[in-house]
Design a protein around this nucleic acid. Structure first.
Lengths: 138, 138
DNA sequence: CTGTGTGCAAAACGTTTGCATGCCT
DNA sequence: AGGCATGCAAACGTTTTGCACACAG
């Protein structure tokens, strides 16, 4: 995700508006490495801006995703999580507490489709999900 | 997934019963490489066994998952998919039509957590999700 | 002023559960 | 005969949508 100032410009260039709710959501996501769900974002925004609605959270997250500012993580079977770090990286999720951590190693030199599939698919990215138990839960 | 005969024995050894509905679900999953969702399994069973209920599909898939006979794939943001191939392998999903294909290359020699994280997590497995477009959708 | 954003309520969606009945072993 | 399995309907949690009103640009 870009800085809040750059994001503001990005919004404007798309004919979108900067509202207090959006600003709050941006600030909560900026540099956030906890991979929050929509509900977690909602709770944190609500503390500071108690009248915000869930609808606004969902719609803003959708907007940010469509602008390519955040990534939707499909790794927890129960709900979606959001990651403001859009650079390629990987994740490890604890089977017990469901906490998601980043894995920054660059595996790309070793990972590509077998030649036999190369003509069948046009690959844009890949993501590795590690599963296991974190120290607390083990 | 094991063959239908072996599965029948596995069920019995767990005090579970072989019913016509289960047999039908087993046969549809056996050697199935299409990574069906619960609904796709339901539709296919219903063609042959029209009175089957969605509940039975869900409960049987849960049972098979708990027995370790099938794997639940968290790769499509919209719904869960099921894979009777429980050997480690990877997947590629088309962003457009959502079709899931297998990737059988063994990347394990190259993939492990960075040393700095090794003490934080006890990793049991990893899975690579490739994203792209299939030939039809490109 | 115009049109996008907000927030409420309700709907939608995939999935799970409670319970009475059915049927495999 | 006993207990697991089935199927219906209802509940569930997450996410989406319709709509009237609010407000940023």
């Amino acid at each position: 995700m870009e800085t809040v100032e750059k994001l503001t410009r990005t919004l404007k260039s798309h004919g979108l508006k900067l509202t207090p709710q959006r600003l709050m959501i941006f600030k909560i996501l900026e540099d956030n490495i906890s991979h929050p769900s929509a509900e977690e974002v909602f709770k944190r925004v609500k503390k500071i801006y108690p009248t915000v609605s869930f609808t606004t959270i969902y719609k803003t997250l959708e907007t940010l995703r469509d602008l390519g500012e955040i990534k939707e993580l499909i790794i927890d079977e129960d709900r979606k999580h959001y990651d403001p770090n859009t650079k390629p990286h990987h994740h490890i999720i604890c089977k017990v507490c469901k906490k998601i951590n980043d894995v920054f190693e660059d595996f790309s030199p070793h990972i590509k489709l077998p030649d036999s599939m190369g003509s069948e698919f046009d690959v844009s990215c890949f993501q590795i999900s590690f599963h296991g138990k974190c120290r607390n839960c083990n």
